[in-house]
């Protein structure tokens, strides 16, 4: 069974859980749509994390697990943003899961 998000009259392929199958299908307007499906309205604070996670993936070929996300954000954006309480407040279902989905990245391995 195929899963898609309908966006600007196009069908974007996703997995069963709503993660994009192709990282290059992503664009900022699509992020708004995915966030809406997640029940999140993207504030500038959300965007900062979404962009951060996407840049991390494009640089290192892997999505950051929570520990790495916290440390990397603390180093680049300061300790008030590099902490898990802040990140979970923005992404209640878990930043590693939700921010990656909105950033158009593949579903993180279940075992991490």
């Amino acid at each position: 069974m195929n899963h898609v998000i309908t966006f600007e009259n196009r069908h974007i392929d996703t997995d069963k859980f709503g993660y994009l199958l192709n990282v290059n299908d992503w664009q900022p307007e699509l992020a708004e749509k995915i966030a809406q499906l997640e029940g999140i309205e993207l504030s500038p604070a959300h965007w900062e994390v979404v962009n951060f996670v996407r840049d991390f993936y494009l640089e290192f070929n892997t999505s950051p697990a929570i520990r790495a996300l916290v440390k990397a954000m603390a180093l680049k954006l300061g300790a008030d943003k590099g902490n898990s309480r802040y990140l979970f407040r923005l992404f209640p279902d878990g930043p590693a899961k939700q921010a990656t989905k909105i950033a158009g990245l593949p579903k993180p391995a279940k075992c991490l």
Partner: peptide, 21 residues
């Protein structure tokens, strides 16, 4: 059993089978 290693090799629990149709 590591779920990622197992699902990759077709060793599926009831939950994983449902997750992946």
């Amino acid at each position: 059993v590591c779920v990622t290693a197992a699902t990759k090799r077709g060793v599926l629990s009831a939950n994983d089978a449902a997750d992946h149709d």
